[in-house]
């Protein structure tokens, strides 16, 4: 069996703030194979973005990776020297950010921002870099790429900017792309186009993809695997079909219930009561227990990671087995 492109084991990313240790990511494990798509799902503040930045080696002080391992193509990334990590970033591991309005530098031409990503990793001529930038823009469906290279980011629409960001991610043919809610800021129709194209490109090139989102419907149509996070911890993991059809954690259950669906038209949406607790004031034991209908005395203990079925992982003492109505 070949090694997965990326395997994260028991990752802990903590922030040492003035008011205490903030455990943004606290024990998360998953793996992504070549050409596969993993959906990393959770509410804002659940630690999913920090997980992405941890893999990129872009966690800034006061944050640090406090423990665990990130293996990429068989190589340990935790503790890798800065320069080696830099050489991987943007070349072997690329990232697409949430808000395309904020990620492209407003005062640099698109061309500059594309070619610099090539020059950072390879010695190529100006003309060669430009040709590759143009091809990448064409690949993501931007019309008349030659002209658009000369433009500034504000001359693009939001959807077009996100395409530029995707094109930049593709420039160096990475083995892994981490996409941090890349379609959240976009219109639904454009979101659909982009999802489709990203999926296609990953299949074609064999790039592994981690898609970070809070939107289960996106994951349902895109991902192969799903990893649900809550308050910095992985709570449930498995193939998309298994997890969405037979959720076992009550948080996942709640998430699925809160997605509006045609089949339940007229019925009230299921809500998860309460809000996610502050990461500084997590209750002991299962962090979901204060919002969970099934919580009991056992839940004051930390639930261990179990594997209730092949290919699935879970942290819960009282797994649900019912299929959601």
């Amino acid at each position: 069996m070949t090694e997965p492109t990326l395997s994260v084991t028991d990752l802990r990313t903590w922030f040492d703030t003035r008011v205490g240790m903030l455990k943004a990511v606290d024990g998360v494990s998953f793996a992504v194979d070549k050409g596969r798509i993993l959906g990393l799902v959770g509410e804002s503040g659940s630690g999913k973005s920090v997980t992405g930045f941890s893999i990129m080696g872009l966690v800034d002080p006061p944050g640090r990776i406090a423990g665990g391992s990130i293996r990429f193509n068989g190589r340990e990334l935790v503790g890798l020297p800065d320069e080696e990590m830099r050489a991987l970033r943007g070349s072997r591991i690329a990232m697409i950010f949430q808000d395309p309005m904020m990620t492209l530098n407003p005062v640099l031409r698109v061309e500059t921002q594309m070619t610099e990503a090539i020059f950072a990793h390879e010695k190529v001529t100006e003309a060669e870099a430009k040709r590759r930038a143009r091809d990448a823009l064409g690949q993501v469906g931007i019309p008349s790429p030659e002209e658009r290279l000369k433009a500034y980011p504000h001359q693009f629409s939001g959807g077009m900017r996100q395409r530029v960001a995707i094109a930049i991610a593709l420039l160096n043919k990475p083995d892994l792309i981490i996409a941090d809610e890349p379609t959240t800021a976009l219109d639904v129709t454009i979101q659909g186009q982009i999802l489709y194209e990203v999926q296609k490109l990953c299949r074609q090139t064999g790039t592994a993809l981690i898609w970070i989102t809070h939107d289960l419907s996106v994951v349902a149509s895109l991902a192969d695997e799903i990893c649900v996070m809550y308050a910095g911890r992985m709570v449930e993991q498995g193939s998309v079909d298994d997890v969405l059809d037979r959720p076992m954690h009550h948080y996942t259950l709640g998430l699925i219930g809160s997605v509006p669906s045609r089949h339940r038209k007229g019925q009230p949406l299921v809500q998860i009561p309460g809000v996610m607790p502050s990461l500084l004031k997590l209750p002991g034991g299962c962090s979901f227990r204060l919002r969970c209908t099934r919580a009991d005395a056992a839940c004051t203990e930390e639930p261990p990671e179990t594997s209730p079925a092949p290919g699935r992982k879970l942290r819960c003492f009282h797994p649900a087995t019912a299929v959601p109505a």
Binding site: F53, L58, R89, G90, F97, D99, T103, L104, N105, Q113
Partner: peptide, 23 residues
Amino acid sequence: DYVKYARAKGLGMRRVMFVHVFK
């Protein structure tokens, strides 16, 4: 965000600082 993004592209701190931030 654009600084983090520039770093995510694998640019060195020098270029991030003197081209992206400086401009």
